[in-house]
């Protein structure tokens, strides 16, 4: 029971953090929100017995790449007060729609009678640690992962270092 409550609480927090991230007008808050979302997601993944995915999430999706781009955009255009006010109004409209969309999706899932209960595949063996899984089974992904990190690092250099034009 308490586990369920925790799960639901985490999920709600996750959604709230994500909404805040998108809706806040200040760049710094937005980045913090993204990091918070990511941290919550990591926690959920750990709760779901998926340390592998949690590690991935922490490493890549912790907002590094999007943060770079968001700040790059921030470099070029700062919002004035008018724009902020307009944005606030627009934001309300968008989030009023959110529950409607969610409800429609849920209705569609029920109506279309998508079976959500089926046998889960067997979990990987007890010896499957992060290292063995990564090295033995997902070596290619590891390389890809490294490349993504490298690309992100170079992105920082390319986009943020040196004078802005």
């Amino acid at each position: 029971m308490s586990a369920n409550v925790l799960d639901i609480a985490l999920t709600v927090l996750l959604v709230a953090a994500a909404v805040w991230t998108v809706s806040t007008a200040r760049m710094l808050r937005s980045v913090i929100g993204l990091a918070a979302t990511s941290a919550l997601l990591t926690a959920i993944l750990f709760r779901l017995d998926s340390p592998l995915a949690a590690v991935f999430e922490l490493s890549v999706c912790a907002g590094l790449i999007p943060a770079i781009l968001v700040s790059a955009v921030g470099l070029t255009a700062r919002m004035d007060d008018d724009a902020l006010a307009r944005r606030k109004r627009a934001k309300l409209k968008v989030f009023a729609l959110l529950p409607v969309i969610l409800a429609a999706a849920a209705w569609a899932l029920v109506r279309l009678n998508v079976p959500l209960d089926f046998a889960l595949p067997a979990a990987q063996g007890p010896g499957a640690t992060v290292q063995t899984t990564l090295w033995n089974l997902r070596q290619a992904d590891l390389v890809g992962q490294i490349a993504v990190l490298l690309a992100a690092a170079f992105g920082v250099v390319v986009l943020l270092k040196g004078k802005s034009q």
Binding site: L69, A72, L75, T76, A140, G144, V148, A151, F154, Q165
Partner: peptide
């Protein structure tokens, strides 16, 4: 399929940065 996705992301991240390479708005 997952590796395919990962490498597509590598390319995508590179593309973001390359498109914005000259930092003009």
């Amino acid at each position: 399929l997952f590796s395919l996705y990962v490498f597509m992301e590598v390319l995508a991240v590179c593309s973001f940065i390359l498109i914005a390479f000259n930092r003009d708005p």
